[in-house]
């Protein structure tokens, strides 16, 4: 078997091992890849910047371990941005795992930036997805009463972070990070009637649909999957997991492309030789 024939039949296990390597390498050691900041990501950044300080933001967490690599960096970048600008935020989870992940992330970032739980930020905990629509209908009128307690069971009224937050008018921004795609509900129940700005963090597969909402002005910005989070991290000037993971994303794509090219080189040369022999 010539080398060109071999190029056409690379063992899949070698390819799998290569894939693992090109993914693990940037994650562990980092890899500098050019990151482009699209207008959609700038929209998210500007929306956070523009939010008045006397209002509060809500970060929706509707994802679990399956899409953690895509959604968690989005949430972490958002949290970091809010804390850097001394703006208050609350996290509301519709996935039990996502609730835990986002709480852990927030605790780490908050200790890094010397913020206090209950004063600068709050985690409202997990609510079953079945409650989404009743909650959407009720909480705009009285946030503290309808949300009730935070993740630790403390009544919200007792937390200083909730001072002055009564109705949806006191909510300055909604950031929806999701692997489910329930954005339409937030648009219908919150953005539609109350004009609360929304920024959106979907997974990569859902991004194409989301551009429609962006065009229509229903959302102010969009973080397309992991890449969006990486661009956001770039704007914040702090390279986090998404920046590394985007390296992995790029390198894995490049690996596929390289393998396809190799296979075709082998194919073309072998065929040409066969033609010459014949």
């Amino acid at each position: 078997m010539t080398i060109f024939e071999k190029l056409q039949h690379i063992d899949r296990r070698i390819m799998y091992l290569l894939l693992l390597l090109v993914i693990a390498w940037p994650l562990i050691w980092g890899m500098d890849m050019p990151i482009m900041v699209s207008p959609a990501v700038k929209g998210v950044y500007n929306a956070v910047e523009k939010m008045p300080k006397d209002k509060m933001a809500i970060i929706i967490v509707y994802w679990g371990s399956g899409t953690i690599a895509e959604n968690r960096p989005q949430v972490e970048a958002l949290m970091r941005h809010f804390m850097m600008r001394n703006k208050r935020f609350a996290v509301l989870a519709f996935d039990p795992q996502g609730s835990k992940f986002s709480y852990d992330s927030a605790k780490i970032i908050s200790s890094e930036l010397h913020k206090t739980y209950g004063k600068d930020w709050v985690h409202w905990g997990f609510r079953p997805p079945a409650n989404l629509i009743p909650l959407l209908q009720s909480f705009p009128h009285d946030v503290i009463k309808n949300i009730g307690t935070d993740i630790n069971g403390t009544p919200l009224g007792k937390l200083p972070v909730m001072n002055g937050i009564k109705t949806i008018k006191d909510i300055g921004l909604l950031a929806d990070t999701t692997s489910v795609g329930e954005l339409d509900y937030w648009i219908a129940y919150v953005h539609g009637p109350y004009r609360t700005p929304i920024v959106y963090g979907p997974t990569a597969v859902m991004t194409a649909d989301a551009f429609n909402s962006l065009d229509a002005g229903q959302i102010n910005g969009l973080l397309p999957g992991m890449q969006g989070a990486a661009a956001y991290e770039k704007m914040l000037g702090r390279k986090g997991f998404a920046t590394k993971a985007t390296g992995a994303l790029s390198s894995s794509h490049l690996l596929i492309i390289a393998l396809i090219i190799l296979g075709n080189i082998g194919y073309i040369i072998t065929r040409r030789r066969q033609e010459q022999q014949a």
């Binding site: 690379i10 899949r12 390819m15 894939l19 371990s65 399956g66 596929i256 393998l259 396809i260 075709n264």
Partner: peptide, 24 residues
């Protein structure tokens, strides 16, 4: 949940071998 997302992520491997083989 863990085995589900692991099984899901094997598609990442399979997409590489499928692309390599089919895109000639």
């Amino acid at each position: 949940s863990a085995l589900g997302s692991t099984m899901f992520s094997t598609i990442g491997f399979f997409i590489v071998s499928a692309a390599y083989r089919a895109f000639r």
